[in-house]
Amino acid sequence: MDITFKDVSYIYQANTPFEHRALSGVSFHIPSGSFVAVIGHTGSGKSTLLQHLNGLLRPTEGKVMIDDYQISAGEKTKDIKSLREKVGVVFQYPEHQLFEETVAKDIGFGPLNFNVEPKEIERRTGEAIKAVGLPEDLLQRSPFDLSGGQMRRVAIAGVLAMNPEVLVLDEPTAGLDPSGQREIMDMFSRQHKNNNLTTVLVTHSMEDALRYADHIIIMKDGEKYMEGAPLDVLVNKEELQRVQLDLPEVIQFLHQAEKQFGKAIPYQKQSIAQLAKELTAIVKGGESNG
């Protein structure tokens, strides 16, 4: 589904002394099938932006269009429920939303709310638990008996079981250990490809943005600061430093190497082995620049 923001502003507690402008004049277009990373510091407006994607928030000004759905100030969106079925949101620490007696029931909770047939729910539940890499015999256990990492996966399975067309991820790997982080992100990447999803990932990790996204939006103080392809946006040291964001480590290193040896290695998502070869060629290159 295409996602379009047109001059979207959002003000919390408008017309009170606590008024706070969280988004101002944000516009962008995400074509169906993209994997977009939204990056910015806490308070940059990315969480507010995310909540517009399934109508949890309605813009104070401007409008949001998701496929045929339109969310704008004042008017009620038709079929907000069916929009929420099509846009699955994985919130930060999603394991906090678990509540059912069994894992199966919790995974099936979303589909049940959207009036999916019981047979179909069962099928999707089985599929979803496999997708997140958990054994099926967990289905009849209580979600509260599981480890933190397993609970996170169950919660994610609950969103996948809604069969969404858009997947919105709010720092889905926060608090996991590095191998858990990698597994979860690879899983989302597979889902994205296999199910033709449109994915919006809110993250702090420049590494993840570089690795998984095909489009990047950087937010600053409620405004869109930069936008573009990862290899254009994430190499721009000066612009990123202005918003106190770091370059991904690979690119940082290549910049430093260029300074040291006077020769650039353009980054094109090479493997570390490939980088090592190119770097070796430069080191062995002979003529000194010193």
């Binding site: 570390i272 082995a273 070869k277």
Partner: peptide
């Protein structure tokens, strides 16, 4: 299954490449 830092991995590959 523990990760190592980027420079550690790169250094290993550089050694493998003959440095």
């Amino acid at each position: 299954g523990l990760d190592t830092p980027f420079v550690t991995k790169l250094a290993a590959e550089l050694s493998a490449a003959g440095l």
